[in-house]
């Protein structure tokens, strides 16, 4: 009897999350998203895969994004990386410097409100393993925007690849003036700390930052979203 009860409980533990993951949103993920996005950790982490994939990996989306932003963006998707992904596939020589070639960029599908909410829900269930995004890593302290800006620009050179305000900065990385609305602090912290832990061949370098610098940079990027984007 006890053994049956234990077995039933065990099944319940396994079936619980599985059932939650089998909802409408999970169905949409499996039918509409996996053509371009990995919703499970890919075994192949080669450079060739990076060149071939059509969109960012989403297997840790629940630890990366803010749900309200996902719901909004899925209904009205706009480009986050000025040169797309992977940037090198969408660049051509210009008269002065290289420029973005938009001809090969496909727009992201627009979802109706109900579908967007269901997909956002399913994405939020894709939580990163603790070793990838450590919960509570970002301490949430407020940062001076002047100090943060100097750090982001002159001292660490983040602006070479990322835009901290619309129209100024690099184009090969994601725009960051919307990051506060889009991303979770612990994710920003963990990603800056070691981008290659997320993707061994990703084109963002590891800056080897000390703990206070990681905190300051994460805080600045989050606050950018609250100030510059509005």
């Amino acid at each position: 009897m006890n053994r049956h009860l234990l077995a039933a409980l065990g099944l319940g533990l396994i079936a619980g999350p599985a059932l939650a993951a089998d909802g409408i949103g999970a169905g949409l993920l499996k039918s509409q998203c996996i053509g371009c996005h990995a919703i499970a950790k890919p075994e192949n982490t080669s450079l060739d895969r990076l060149w071939e994939r059509k969109g960012p990996d989403l297997y840790y989306a629940g630890s990366k994004f803010n749900k309200p932003w996902l719901e909004k963006w899925l209904q009205n998707p706009v480009r986050i990386r000025p040169a797309g992904e992977l940037y090198a596939r969408h660049v051509k020589g210009g008269t002065k410097e290289d420029v973005v070639d938009e001809s090969g960029m496909a727009p992201h599908p627009k979802l109706p409100k109900a579908d967007a909410e269901a997909v956002a829900e399913a994405l939020m269930a894709l939580v990163a393993p603790a070793e990838l995004v450590s919960k509570g890593a970002f301490k949430g302290e407020k940062v001076s925007m002047a100090m943060g800006g100097m750090f982001f620009g002159k001292l660490r050179g983040c602006g070479a690849c990322h835009m901290a305000k619309p129209g100024f900065g690099g184009a090969s990385g994601a725009e960051l003036y919307t990051a506060g609305e889009r991303l979770q602090g612990d994710y920003i912290y963990s990603y800056i700390k070691n981008p290659q832990q997320f993707d061994p061949r990703i084109w963002m370098p590891t800056l080897n930052l000390a703990e206070p610098d990681l905190q300051r940079l994460t805080g600045y990027i989050l606050q950018l979203g609250a100030t510059e984007a509005k």
Binding site: A83, Y87, E97, V99, V100, G159, F168, A171, S172
Partner: peptide, 27 residues
């Protein structure tokens, strides 16, 4: 060359001439 196109070309350019997509606003 493949590594260059992935990591270096964003700043040093697809033509390797220092005029990458990120170079416009660099100090």
């Amino acid at each position: 060359a493949r590594n260059y196109d992935t990591y270096c070309a964003q700043c040093h350019g697809i033509n390797r001439n220092g005029r990458g997509i990120n170079s416009r606003d660099m100090s």
